[in-house]
Amino acid sequence: MLVAVGACYLDTILTTPYYPGEDEKLRATNVTRRRGGNCPNTLEVLQQLTFHESTERGLPLTLITILPAKSSMATQKIRSSFGSRVNLDHCIYREGLEEPASCYIIKSQSTGSRTIVNYNNLLEITLEEFTGAAEKLGSEATWFHFEGRTPEMTLQFILYLRKQFPAIQVSVEIEKPGRPGLQELAEEADVVFYSKTWAQDLGYHTAEECLREQSKRIHNASLLCCTWGQDGASALQPRTGDFEHVAAYTTENFKVVDPIGAGDTFIAGMLYALNCKEKDWDLSKKLAFANRIAGLKVSQEGFASLDRALASFV
């Protein structure tokens, strides 16, 4: 079982011709509302990919997140947005609150970039709440993936897992620049996913530079990954020094349509490869697949039918 721990949002996405200036009035060309959040997005893709696995090799999926009151319209909408392959029985509810964590995104057609404003009045998960959920899952869980929110608290979650369930694999996403404690999270994980923005904030100029320098500080991890936008993605196995790089996925007439969630999709592709194709694919193939499915995501709105990446992948 793979368990993802992170925030769940309801997204409102406005597509505009360009990004408006301060105090400017601008008409949007499209509006989309959907469930978002890094871990929910990753599970959205994983549930498609694992659908193709046999019963014996299937990968059960669980989300641990904070939601408003169990009876609220927002919670009901979020729960109904997932397929039957994602278990939400271990979510934590903030009774008395009706508003979910919300994300308002302005997507510029002229540049393909997006600007994000978040709202979240839900108290973050506590150590007691997390350990309670983890104990109920027990030895059924084989992998925990963390978004990298509240690093100090997340570090306590990981240390708890190391003590109580030492066989569990742990992955973390190191994404937001300037967030204290992310380096310490990376040093405790088995698999680390670095973002380009975080790496650049530390002065790294390429994904390879980031991974090789980080490998000097990482003692537990078996795999480090870093995406670099138009320059593709890279992966490094610190214990062996094996390094792989793939160019950004593209096809004839490729067009950037919706980059929102591309990083979450890459992580889904790699987690699928690590959990379901561990012995079948080498590192190069695992990285190529994660890169391919992330590229497909960028070329379309939303996350529907991304499992088609498997059909053409040899």
Rank of each mutant, 00 (worst) to 15 (best):
M1A: 11
V5Q: 07
D11A: 05
D11N: 06
I13G: 00
L14A: 14
T15V: 15
Y19V: 03
P20F: 00
D23A: 13
K25N: 01
K25R: 08
R27K: 13
T29M: 04
T32S: 11
R33G: 11
R35I: 13
R35A: 09
G36V: 13
N38M: 13
C39W: 07
C39P: 06
P40W: 07
L43A: 05
F51K: 15
H52V: 05
T55D: 02
E56C: 01
E56M: 06
T65P: 01
L67C: 09
K77D: 12
S80Y: 11
S84D: 14
R85H: 11
R85A: 13
R85Y: 09
R85V: 04
N87S: 13
N87F: 09
E99I: 14
S102C: 11
Y104H: 14
K107H: 15
L123W: 09
T126C: 10
T126D: 11
L127Q: 03
L137A: 06
G148D: 00
T154S: 10
F157A: 09
I158W: 01
L159S: 08
R162C: 02
Q164E: 13
Q169G: 03
V170K: 03
I174N: 00
R179K: 15
P180K: 10
P180I: 06
E188P: 03
E188M: 10
D190A: 10
S195H: 02
K196L: 09
K196P: 04
L211R: 02
L211I: 04
E213T: 00
Q214S: 04
S215R: 08
K216L: 12
A221L: 07
C226F: 02
G229A: 13
T240W: 08
E244A: 12
V246F: 11
V246N: 12
T250W: 05
T251Q: 15
E252F: 07
K255Y: 03
V257K: 08
G269L: 00
M270T: 06
M270D: 02
N275C: 14
N275S: 15
E278D: 12
K279A: 13
D280G: 05
S284I: 01
F289R: 07
A290P: 04
R292I: 10
A294H: 04
G295S: 05
L296P: 08
G302P: 11
F303R: 10
S305K: 15
L306A: 07
R308P: 03
R308T: 12
A309P: 00
